[in-house]
């Protein structure tokens, strides 16, 4: 079994948020929303369902809520991705590449570390490859999604909280090895 790994993501790529047009109710809003989502599908190849991530050739589209997506791309830089998305006329688009620090948490014990700081259920029956959640870990707001069945998870955290979170995970992993998290 693979040992627990926890490391900063050196090249997180571009991160751009989209809030599709057509929020609210009524035929006008739903028409605008259908056009916005159609434009995004045309530009990105796919959109994820609720609480899911869609991965298409170098880009991951993260569902953040019913009116918000975050696109993580290794194909282009943040301002280019922003232009690609703006060109679809999809709605509000903003480059957030500098807004996040990424960590990868993987291997044996990754779930036990998450369980010690995070209240949601990471068991494969409820959270598998392509699942995403915005939640809190050790009282810090995070965005987390599973990228492989190993399991491996990518965690986004605000830069000002990143060193705290890294120290917290190292501590939790130490407790795990000492057997006190079993």
């Amino acid at each position: 079994m693979a040992r627990l790994r926890f490391e900063p993501v050196r090249d997180l790529g571009a991160l751009t948020a989209v809030r599709p047009a057509g929020r609210g109710q009524g035929p006008e809003a739903s028409g605008a929303r259908a056009r916005a989502l159609g434009g995004l599908v045309a530009a990105l190849g796919a959109l994820p369902g609720e609480n899911r991530v869609a991965s298409v050739s170098g880009r991951e589209v993260l569902w953040l809520g019913p009116d918000e997506f975050l696109i993580a791309s290794s194909l282009e830089n943040g301002s280019d991705l922003e232009q690609v998305l703006r060109a679809t006329g999809a709605g509000a688009v903003i480059d957030l590449s500098s807004n996040w620090v990424g960590f990868d948490l993987a291997g044996d014990g990754a779930r036990a570390v998450l369980a010690s700081g995070c209240s949601i259920d990471f068991h494969p029956r409820s959270f598998g490859v392509g699942s995403i959640a915005q939640t809190s870990m050790a009282r810090v707001p995070i965005t987390i999604w599973q990228r492989s069945p190993e399991p491996s998870y990518r965690i986004l955290v605000r830069p000002s909280l990143a060193s705290y979170l890294a120290a917290w995970v190292a501590d939790a992993a130490g407790s795990l090895e000492a057997g006190s998290l079993e």
């Binding site: 609480n51 809520g65 209240s119 949601i120 939640t135 809190s136 009282r139």
Partner: peptide, 10 residues
Amino acid sequence: PWCGPRDEPE
């Protein structure tokens, strides 16, 4: 109703 069960501080 969108994300599922979560703890109150969220």
